[in-house]
Design a protein around this nucleic acid. Structure first.
Lengths: 219, 219
DNA sequence: GTCTATATCTAGATAGAC
DNA sequence: GTCTATCTAGATATAGAC
């Protein structure tokens, strides 16, 4: 919220100081991603994060008033980027929605820090009272509901078979992604996460599509 | 290792003190499961664990020489119990192996502490240098390899279709379990984890079984 | 087997100098 | 915007009394 106000203020008073602050904030956020990925929220340390950024703890707390504020900012920042990149235009078909998931997995395999962070925080947030508990509950519900709605529309268009529990299918697809990311974080070089998700979604598509076809193959 | 020696000593000198120690150790292990579930390894505190057990930190460190020793003991203890209970007799068919997985999921839904602990530690252990990093790499490789071998034998017996990537299928099944457990830990009352795993495995079975049948239905 | 005491270190947050 | 200083609290681990 402070950040938003800062940006608004910048527009009305376009002096040269704010952009520097924005860049510093961005570097703090990036560094925090790696720390939350390694330590989770509880065991992360503002002093260590600040040291990695190259400032002191006091300096960091000028930009984020508390550790919890930093966590919330990191999560919101991360998810905003992704929803713009992967989920902003409504998919025109179920196959296209599945392709978006595969694209997201591919992207995640190129940013291990962020991927590990979500593995870590999603697990940690299972506890009532964790500062991101409600956030993650809402996050999963939103993603799964949106996915379910996409599949429901595909049924109406005759792409997918009717009479299937598509809410269950949606939750299952996300579970496969998360589970594969967990294995991948442990041993990234031992298997192709993107390929394995594609195999799963292709088999799924064959079973639920009205004409029995899978995803369009790549080359 | 100290524990093993202690048990050996008990046999040769059967005085009445050791069983008390064993019971105390068991209570420490149980309590530690809940703490590792909530805090992970790094953010857990020996003093808080000891307080929950009803002893002091010094007392706890008599039984486990360090925090890391406690972690390793908890993991080994947990996995020993489960492999005896679910994976000890070789399954006679792929369907039976899948049923074991479903049974495990059902059991896990009845012990949220242990389930959350494995969610948490598996994510935390993704980092190189985590005291359970190698443990979890080995754990996944063992589980998936064993699963793969079971499916391979089923192919030889003509139960399952040949020409399918059964190593991939095995990793995928474990991913579904883990992903569902992650969602379940966040909101246990909103969905039936066991039922959802059964739905997935039944659909999978229909697609890979030689005669196209799924899992035997439950009444 | 458990206690107390202690050493050493690190945590998050606040206040105020520059 | 970043620093230093400071406060309170809590961490792991060791040593030795009982």
């Amino acid at each position: 919220m402070d950040r938003t106000q800062g940006r608004t203020a910048r527009r009305s008073a376009p002096r040269g100081t704010y952009p520097v602050g924005d860049e510093r904030r961005a570097r703090i956020l990036d560094t925090a991603v790696d720390h939350f990925a390694q330590w989770g929220f509880h065991a992360s340390s503002l002093a260590r994060i600040a040291k990695d950024v190259g400032i002191t703890q006091g300096g960091l707390l000028h930009h984020f008033r508390s550790k919890e504020d930093l966590l919330v900012s990191v999560l919101r920042h991360s998810d905003e980027q992704d929803s713009e990149r992967f989920f902003s235009p409504d998919p025109r078909s179920a196959a296209e929605a599945f392709e978006s998931l595969i694209e997201l997995a591919r992207y995640n395999s190129q940013r291990p820090g962020r991927t590990r962070m979500f593995n870590m925080l999603a697990a940690e947030a299972g506890e009532h009272g964790h500062p991101a508990h409600e956030y993650f509950i809402h996050r999963y519900r939103t993603i799964i509901d949106k996915n379910t709605e996409t599949l429901r529309l595909a049924v109406e268009r005759g792409e997918l078979k009717p009479g299937i529990d598509y809410a269950g299918i949606s939750a299952e697809s996300i579970a496969v992604m998360d589970g594969l990311q967990l294995q991948w974080a442990l041993a990234p070089d031992t298997f192709d996460m993107t390929g394995r998700l594609r195999t799963y979604l292709d088999r799924l598509m064959r079973q639920i599509s009205a004409d029995g076809s899978g995803l369009p193959g790549r080359t």
